[in-house]
């Protein structure tokens, strides 16, 4: 019991929560933006992998960290163009197109990575983002080192979550996005072009996914290796449902999820040996499934999600 209290009282746990949450926040917001406009983007797993790879590779070849992050976001956006072409212009099955984008983006990342970086026992590393102390707040006892000495992209991710909530619920553009996701025919009647909105939302959302992937290689770790994404993208898709398509709740969901993750990592060392470590590694996936089962019926799904829009066709 005292050991449990020790875990909760440790600064390491709480600072890990924000670090683990960052890629999930960005990925979930990206998926949420796509889905609000009516497009399910299952390309997320591959797009995040590609972002992680290209961001790392750019920095490895001399770009600075922010440029690396930007390149990852742009690359994500390009995959967004591909996904929108398949699902919006051609109106193909969003499930299959998304899986196709994931398969292509992840195998393409591995190919490019292997082409440039030959096989080695220890993968090459870069100098990642360093913690950034927020003046005044970071000198608070306990809370300072736990919450206010994160890397810059973490703060950025939280700001983006709040900004996205504002855009979606408080601006005309947000209204147009929501309307396209609910009823594209009505949106068109109001003078909104659903095609343009969907393209925009999917490209911007995919850019967020790319940046989320890049956080892993540019801040959380310092190297790239295939299979590092470990289903984080799929967890983001589950978090969107858990968040009931609201950015604020997505932020909360990602933090809650990251808390469980950080907690199980510490339980793993505490109970090391007594319980197989694989049981702990399973928890994120099982938690996501449980969250889906709890929320799927209660959540308000955008009504036109997964329905292609073809002008003049019902």
């Amino acid at each position: 019991m005292t050991q449990l209290i020790d875990i909760f009282a440790s600064i390491g746990l709480w600072s890990a929560v924000l670090r683990i949450a960052t890629p999930l926040i960005l990925g979930t917001l990206g998926a949420l933006l796509c889905e609000r406009s009516g497009v399910l983007n299952l390309g997320i797993e591959g797009i995040m992998t590609f972002g992680a790879m290209i961001g790392w590779l750019s920095v490895y070849h001399g770009a600075d960290l922010w440029t690396g992050l930007l390149i990852a976001a742009i690359a994500g956006g390009l995959f967004g163009v591909l996904h929108s072409f398949l699902t919006v212009t051609l109106g193909l099955s969003q499930h299959v197109s998304g899986l196709g984008v994931t398969l292509f983006a992840s195998s393409f990342s591995y190919y490019v990575f292997r082409m440039v970086v030959p096989v080695a026992n220890t993968p090459p590393t870069i100098v990642p983002f360093q913690p950034l102390d927020i003046p005044v707040l970071s000198s608070l006892p306990f809370f300072g080192p736990a919450f206010f000495t994160q890397t810059a992209p973490t703060y950025l991710a939280i700001i983006i979550a709040l900004l996205l909530a504002y855009i979606i619920f408080r601006t005309p553009m947000g209204l147009a996005i929501r309307m396209t996701g609910e009823n594209p025919h009505a949106a068109e009647a109001q003078g909104v072009n659903p095609m343009v909105i969907r393209y925009g939302a999917v490209i911007a959302g995919s850019a967020l996914m790319g940046a989320g992937g890049a956080f892993l290689t540019l801040a959380a770790f310092d190297s790239f290796f295939p299979t590092m994404m470990q289903g984080r993208g799929w967890i983001c898709i589950a978090l969107v449902v858990f968040a009931s398509w609201r950015p604020g709740r997505a932020l909360f969901g990602a933090l809650l999820f990251a808390f469980f993750e950080a907690f199980q990592l510490r339980m793993q060392t505490m109970l090391g040996g007594a319980v197989p470590y694989q049981l702990f590694l399973m928890t994120p996936y099982i938690l996501s499934i449980v969250a889906l089962a709890l929320m799927a019926r209660r959540a308000r799904v955008p009504q036109a999600l997964m329905q292609p829009y073809r002008r003049g066709e019902r």
Partner: peptide
């Protein structure tokens, strides 16, 4: 999960892939 809770089976079947490999590993 789909029939009882109307959960999209794409995400759950994907997530279970990771669980399955971990069960094997365990």
């Amino acid at each position: 999960l789909r029939l009882r809770f109307s959960v999209d089976e794409v995400v759950t079947s994907l997530l279970l892939n990771f669980v399955a490999v971990l069960i094997v590993s365990m």
